[in-house]
Write a protein that binds this DNA or RNA. Structure first.
Length: 428
RNA sequence: GGGGAGAUACCCAAGUGGCCAACGGGGGCAGACUGUAAAUCUGCUGCUUCACAGCUUCACAGGUUCGAAUCCUGUUCUCCCCA
């Protein structure tokens, strides 16, 4: 089985190709090859900001090639100056090890490590750096690259004013050596990454050329920004993580379903493996009836399944239906206790003691100190004044007192500020 | 080492003895509109038993004054110029 599809063409229509080194397309079209992308183990979970690179590996595998995910245990200890204006804090080895394991597990949800024909592989550059002494490194590697060459990189140039440590200055050589090592030991002569990695990638290609006389290739992706120019991957609550414990599948689904029209179209290209006809048909359909948000829904569903699995998506959809699907107090009452807990799994919650409730709690107290939903009573009053508070899907007035009568299914009260902020109170 | 400028709420930024919880902008939150969108309009955005009331707040610590973010003293930090 040596058939591969034209990967460069595939990336092009998906809008994922920013730049490539000469000959890369031809190299890929010869047959299955290996290609790698590095991931920083700076946290014990990846977030949606990493999704472009994750999908690069996935599309690569779908095209018939063998993806290698490199977890940067060693490079994570150094710190990449690319795109950073200040020196980075170093992580200790124990933390890095933990992060590497978690990141590896997450990648396994997207790319297939068990394929017979084109299995993905996970490597950790700490393994080839841990016994590499400083003297050996500067003799074997440093010897081949001139300081002038290194200084010419943007990542270094941009930091000459504000200052850059020798450690970060050296980073490109360390990452470059990864590329060399993989080409030598794994036959991997292609590196992929974000466009900000171009400088590091070319250093690696240069090393391969000088140390081995070998040829190397590269593919980079454009930096993804949202249609309004803001940074992709952040939302009100901060980062959107791939770890369900950090970002619930419900919130994760909501993140994607809230995409603007333009973003949703791009997400369909980048974050799904749908064939071109399907993507284009959906986009066209959406253009005819944008108010249905069909594109957002399909894209969000596809990505959520890929990340968290079918059943987590179903739970997220149920929650969405209840919270946004014109849900009413009656709809809430029809849920079983288990359904309540499932549906609101991703919603912040607090417990309140029964006796407090039986004597009645003023809504202001309930919203603020009793639950922690809103930060202060002043804030709670303000919210009530603007009419943005609902209790069990029914708008609440300032004088409202909440008692046991308001409990649904004998246990729950659903608080709501505005359309999208929910809070679940449980009887303690 | 010498000289100068400055530190104000999430960010930028006015204010230079009482009318300052502190103009304005950004951001954030909410309401209307809508498609859980964008754009637009409106309101809110220190705390408190929201009241033209009280309390905490304008780098930090003291002081002057009936009264200070605003004046004085000291401390810390930042920036610029000269050497």
């Amino acid at each position: 089985m040596n058939t591969v599809r034209d990967h460069v063409e595939e990336l092009t229509w998906r809008g994922l190709l920013h730049d490539s080194m000469p000959g890369t397309r031809e190299y890929l079209n010869q047959g299955p090859v290996s290609g790698y992308i590095g991931f920083d183990p700076t946290a014990d979970s990846l977030h949606v900001g990493n999704m472009v690179q994750i999908m690069m590996l996935k599309h690569f595998q779908e095209s018939g090639h063998r993806p290698i995910a490199l977890v940067g245990g060693a490079t994570g200890m150094v710190g990449d100056p690319s795109g950073k204006k200040s020196e980075r804090n170093l992580l200790d080895e124990e933390t890095l090890r933990h992060n590497q394991r978690c990141v590896g597990d997450q990648l396994a949800r997207f790319i297939d490590f068990g394929s017979r024909t084109r299995p993905a592989e996970l490597v950790n550059n700490y393994d080839w750096f841990k016994d590499m002494g400083f003297l050996r490194f500067i003799r074997e590697v440093g010897k081949h690259i001139s300081v002038g060459y290194m200084l010419a990189k943007d990542s270094v140039k941009n930091r000459m004013e504000s200052g850059i440590s020798f450690t970060e200055f050296t980073y490109q050589l360390v990452q470059g050596y990864d590329f060399y090592w993989l080409s030598k030991n794994k036959g991997c002569r292609l590196q992929m990454g974000g466009s900000d990695q171009w400088g590091n990638i070319t250093t690696g290609a240069e090393l391969i050329r000088r140390m081995d006389g070998g040829e190397a290739f590269a593919l980079t992706t454009p930096l993804l920004t949202k249609a309004d120019g803001s940074k992709f991957g952040k939302s009100e609550g901060g980062n959107i993580w791939l770890d369900a414990a950090r970002t619930s599948p419900y919130k994760y689904y909501q993140f994607w379903v809230n995409a603007t029209d333009a973003d949703a179209a791009r997400f369909a290209h980048i974050f799904t493996v749908w064939p071109r006809e399907r993507v284009e048909a959906l986009v066209a359909e959406h253009a005819r009836a944008p108010h249905l948000r069909q594109l957002q829904k399909e894209v969000a569903a596809a990505i959520t399944v890929m990340t968290h699995g079918r059943s987590e998506l179903d739970a997220a959809l149920r929650a969405t239906e209840i919270l946004f699907g014109g849900g009413t107090s009656e709809a809430l009452g029809s849920l079983s206790e288990k359904q309540w807990l499932d549906v609101f799994d991703g919603v912040p919650q607090a417990e309140v003691p029964r006796d407090a409730l039986s004597s009645g709690v003023p809504i202001v107290d309930l919203l603020s100190e009793r639950s922690g939903f809103l930060p202060s009573k002043g804030e709670a009053r303000r919210a009530l004044k603007e009419g943005s508070i609902s209790v069990n899907k029914t708008r609440a007035e300032e004088g409202r007192v909440i008692g046991t009568d308001d409990l649904i299914s004998g246990r729950f009260i659903l608080l709501q500020r505005g359309k999208k902020n929910y809070f679940l109170l449980k009887l303690g």
